[in-house]
Design a binder for these strands. Structure first.
Length: 761
DNA sequence: CCGATACGCATTTTT
DNA sequence: TGCGTATCGG
């Protein structure tokens, strides 16, 4: 087996692949074959003598890791199995499981997900008797997470001047104390949250030179994908792991850094060469995905960003269609316009629905498109929303597993102590909690030795607790004996979950049962796969350590049916579609208004738009609405400033009839608005009701007649439906209605009393 | 312990 | 506006 580097790689890809002597930075423009380079590079390393287990490659998603492993398998076969390949979190949790005794953690430590960590923070805020209106759990959580990402531990937190200042400004000066307690409580519970997996890995390597050395010797070559999305602590860990061999290859695209709100630090990639002084830089600039027009448009857009590594992305594909730009009057009309486009593509161009994607800035925007598609029976699929593993029923079941594996797990305990209902109410739980706090032991220990920890409860309550405790003990006893699947079934039966869920046949209950069944079958699959791989005992412990790091992205969606994909732009990163619709291009939506005051944030939004456009292979459609229903109100806005950032020669100049008018109209409207920002809240004068029969001051009939005097053949411009031709006018006075054929929304009957429109001609 | 009702909040979310 | 959660009362 030999790799044909000449035929399968272009010059710059080949150079990046073959360079294996010291650190390198691969700047991979959108669609430039980044994964190809990574897989070939690993194949090359194997060919020149690296053992598979001495190569570590880190990704951000399980999906990316799986796909890469699959592709490498195709090239090098069996050996791919022994590569260290996975997400930062999964690889580090694996290391931590073997080494964490050095940190004072049990190897069976629990991983707290965001919900667990929120719940713990809530308890702490309550215990400290802080005002939970001032100390919002989410805000506190993100402050702590931010500190961890910057390796500021509780002991240093108060000392950090900037941190202190920010917290004081937000009237949350107790955050440091909350952080300390949270840190302590996680330790007591034998739990790490997602950030801890990184922080403790760093601590492990930094404070234990022998362990650091061991892993430096193990990993002789390290590759990191999506380097633009790494945060400070990830960057530090990578540095610790590479300090002996200095063999590192990072791949990324600064232009696609869109996760700074999660701590991603674009400087890691921008300043890579400052840290690894002798690093070689390779630029992959040929885009194999998109037409020349799309690449040109994206380039012209990103050129407006100041902070970036210059590159000349080019395409040798066909020139392709120009980018289409549609101005809609309202969010509803935008939905109709997009649906019309897709309908046209489907019937006239034989495009599959599966080749079309709607990309938006916020999840809330999906609804209008759903309605438009449903109306036309166009199949669609929405990505995002509640993930499988964060559903209540799934978390409840898993909490049983967690408590059996790690009895100190406080969040798991609280979740299931009275689920299914076993008569252990809030008062009892409060007593357990305070007894546990006083003695500094876990909730579990407290109910195991109630008298030792002064748990003052009635006999009935004690009896119920003992029964609960015995049940969990039975599961604990069999952790080693039984496989995950068998034990999971027993947990479901003996805990009474199955009985509880069988109680009602309400649709939501049915779906809960389905979900639990899906979980059980996932456990079954897990056990079988591991057994096939030669693992003699696959217990719940193993399942748990795997499942905590899974996300929605890992649950498969059946793609047998051809349907339109709808998702946020963030979710679309790394994907590609023949036809892409980027919608809601309005000021205050995209870019989001929270970004307008910060230069850095605005550039990130622009990168987000860049990511959106570069998902398209052949056609890219942009659209915006002049008004949009938001929080129960109609809000008006201007087209996104990003539209003007695209060189106009890439944009289809001749919009269909009506659009030009809309353009000019919105522009003149816009100039007014920017002069007086208050104005956007009120209804613009041109959309005053034509026929006003206000409740308080009813106009005389004659006036109504005159004002609502629209006649067949006229063209009107409606506030939400846009341009339309008057087909018919009937009825008198208050019941007067008109039938209007709107150009983009179809024919509608409007009661003139309520209709907001103006007569154009 | 559940249901009704009120209240507040409302980007993006790889792990 | 519309949802998810918090709280109170039966």
């Amino acid at each position: 087996m030999s790799i044909n580097y000449i035929d399968e790689l272009n010059d710059s890809q080949r150079a990046a692949v073959l360079y294996d002597n010291g650190p390198s930075l691969v700047i991979a423009g959108a669609g430039s074959g980044k994964t190809r380079v990574l897989t070939y590079k690993i194949a090359h390393l194997l060919e020149v003598g690296y053992e598979p287990w001495s190569i570590l490659s880190l990704t951000f998603t399980n999906k990316a890791a799986r796909e890469m492993r699959k592709r490498i398998e195709k090239q090098v076969g069996e050996r791919a199995r022994y590569l260290w390949m996975g997400t930062f979190h999964s690889i580090f949790s694996r290391i931590l499981r073997t080494e964490c005794e050095a940190l004072g953690f049990p190897s069976s430590f629990t991983i707290y997900d965001t919900a667990d960590s929120k719940s713990l923070l809530k308890s702490i805020i309550g215990e400290m008797q802080l005002d939970d209106k001032k100390y919002k759990v989410g805000a506190v959580q993100s402050r702590i997470s931010n500190a961890k990402n910057h390796l500021i531990l509780p002991a240093d937190y108060g000392r950090d001047a900037e941190t202190k200042q920010v917290d004081a400004a937000n009237q949350m000066s107790a955050i440091g104390e909350i952080y300390s307690r949270y840190w302590q409580r996680c330790r007591q519970a034998g739990a790490m949250d997602f950030d801890d997996l990184l922080v403790y890995t760093y601590k492990l390597l930094f404070e234990h030179p022998a362990i650091c050395k061991k892993y430096n010797e193990r990993f002789r070559y390290i590759l990191v994908d999506e380097y633009q999305d790494t945060n400070f602590v990830q960057h530090q860990i990578v540095q610790l792991l590479t300090k002996e061999n200095n063999n590192i290859c990072v791949v990324g695209d600064d232009a696609q850094s869109i996760y700074s709100f999660r701590g991603a630090n674009i400087d890691n990639i921008l300043k890579f060469k400052a840290i690894y002084k002798e690093a070689r830089m390779f630029k992959l600039e040929q885009n194999y995905r998109s037409s020349q027009n799309i690449v040109g448009a994206a380039n012209s857009l990103i050129l407006k960003n100041r902070e970036q590594i210059r590159k000349d992305v080019f395409s040798e594909k066909e020139e392709g269609e120009l980018i289409s730009l549609d101005a809609a009057y309202s969010d509803v009309e935008e939905g109709e316009i997009v649906a019309n486009h897709i309908h046209r593509l489907h019937t006239r161009e034989q495009e599959s629905y599966a080749d079309c994607a709607i990309l938006y800035r916020t999840n809330a925007q999906s609804r209008i498109f759903e309605e438009a598609f449903r109306k036309r029976s166009i199949p669609y699929q929405i990505y995002g929303g509640l993930s499988f593993y964060s559903r209540k029923e799934i978390k409840d079941v898993i909490a049983y597993f967690r408590l059996a594996v790690n009895s100190a797990d406080e969040e798991a305990f609280k979740r299931i102590i009275n689920y299914p209902t076993r008569g252990i109410g809030k008062t009892t739980v409060d007593k357990i909690t305070s007894a546990a706090r006083t003695s500094q032991v876990s909730l579990w220990d407290t109910i195991t030795n109630p008298q030792q920890y002064h748990l003052e409860l009635g006999n009935a309550a004690l009896k119920k607790l003992a029964a609960f405790q015995e049940m969990i003990m039975r599961f604990m006893a069999d952790l080693e004996k039984e496989d995950a699947y068998t034990l999971a079934i027993r947990v479901l039966k003996e805990s009474g979950i199955i009985k509880d869920m069988g109680k009602s046949d309400l649709p939501e209950n049915l779906s809960k049962r389905e979900n639990v069944e899906e979980l059980v079958s996932a456990i079954h699959d897990f056990v079988e796969t591991r057994q096939e791989e030669g693992d003699p005992h696959v217990g719940l412990v193993d399942f748990l350590s795997d499942v905590s790091l899974l996300t929605d992205q890992d649950t498969k969606v059946d793609d047998d049916v051809e349907r339109i994909t709808m998702m946020t732009i963030h979710a679309a990163k790394g994907l590609e579609f023949k036809n892409v619709f980027v919608v809601g291009l309005e000021q205050n939506l995209f870019p989001s208004q929270r970004c307008l005051d910060s230069f850095k944030a605005l550039e990130e939004e622009r990168r987000l738009f860049y990511v959106a456009i570069t998902r398209a292979e052949q056609r890219c459609f942009l659209s915006y609405a002049k008004c949009r229903f938001k929080y129960g109100k109609t809000e008006f806005s201007n087209p996104s400033c990003f539209i003007a950032d695209i060189d106009s020669r890439y944009i289809q100049p001749s919009a269909p009839a009506g659009f030009k008018r809309a353009e000019t109209a919105s522009r003149s409207f816009g100039s007014k608005k920017s002069a007086t920002p208050l104005f956007e809240k009120s209804l613009p004068p041109r959309f005053k009701k034509v026929a006003t029969t206000s409740r308080t001051t009813a106009l005389p009939k004659g006036d109504v007649e005159q004002q609502s005097g629209i006649v067949v053949g006229q063209v009107i411009e409606h506030e939400r439906f846009g341009l339309g031709d008057v087909l018919k006018v009937e009825g008198t006075d208050e019941n007067r209605k008109a039938t209007i054929a709107f150009r983009n929304v179809g024919t509608k009957q409007l009661l003139l009393k309520f209709a907001r429109f103006k007569i154009i001609g």
